[in-house]
Nucleic acid binder design. Structure first.
Lengths: 154, 154
DNA sequence: CTTGACCCTGGAACCGATTCCAGGGTGTAA
DNA sequence: TTACACCCTGGAATCGGTTCCAGGGTCAAG
């Protein structure tokens, strides 16, 4: 199977397949005489595995590690489970942050609508200025993935 | 007030202040004879405005646009409101996706625990392989911000 | 023989907010 | 005068997953 076909089959682009191969996530397939990749049928299962793992929060480097250990004869089941658990923790953290944002936005919008109703067109309503007061009381959890960069010097 | 002091006061880094200034979000302050920025007291309010707008989903370019219009004598109240509304829509979209992920992860973990309980140490449990089947039935909403890149050629 | 669809490669762009860097000045206290 | 903390600048790095690029090959149908 050539890359375009496998890509269509899995709902990804051929570029993405090459990318997975570069990261060691998709095994290098044999080549045809013309230099084309010739994927075995199992490749589709592997790609779908990767896609579904991504969709629950695994990262490509993590998958690379797990899949490489496996092809090295190990079975990182416990590591895999622990990783999934940490994904759940992270998802819960982000959920908390997003729910906070949703509540803030809803109350902001109703407040702003009230202000706009009593503000003539072309006049300042100073909407943005109302944000800091509103948000100063409640602490927000970051709704984006935690990518901790070291603040320490090497 | 020098940059370090304002930064401490607002809980950001001096680098971040410079960044805001580069984007036209924080007005250029006067300089001391030594070339240091000398922020007026109002600067802190502006920085806090920006921080709080960021925390509910506004982006720096969006803030730059709004704040520039304002300093140009306009009052983009309606635009501001519409923008906030679109942020709420986006937050709801992400919430849907994250809730889906949470459910998936929870059921995955309990399934994996059952599998691990009946798998001897050092033996393969094939945890990752169970993902595609589990996820194939339900469609997931992307839990990350939609950054649509055009697929069309110029 | 030409068209057109497909494939190859390594490297770079993209998103956004923040941080880091090198190489150089300012200002104050011991 | 010599530490030391702080500040300046423009440009680049960072995170991750995907896409894009140029310049070139493969291969079937017409």
């Amino acid at each position: 199977m050539r890359s375009g076909e496998l890509a269509r089959l899995c709902g990804v682009s051929p570029d993405t397949l090459r990318h997975y191969e570069r990261l060691g996530i998709l095994p290098k397939p044999p080549r045809t005489s013309g230099g084309y990749r010739d994927y075995p049928t199992e490749a589709a299962a592997r790609v779908r595995l990767v896609r579904s793992a991504l969709s629950v929060g695994f990262s490509l480097p993590e998958l690379a590690t797990l899949l490489r250990m496996r092809s090295g004869g190990q079975f990182p089941c416990r590591e895999t489970r622990r990783l999934a658990e940490s994904k759940l923790v992270e998802v819960k953290r982000q959920l908390k942050g997003l729910k906070g944002m949703r509540g803030q936005l809803e109350s902001i919008l109703s407040d702003w609508d009230a202000r706009l109703a009593r503000t003539a067109k072309g006049q300042p309503a100073h909407l943005l200025e109302t944000l800091p007061d509103r948000l100063s009381r409640t602490k927000q959890a970051a709704p984006f993935p935690k990518n901790q960069r070291s603040k320490s010097k090497p």
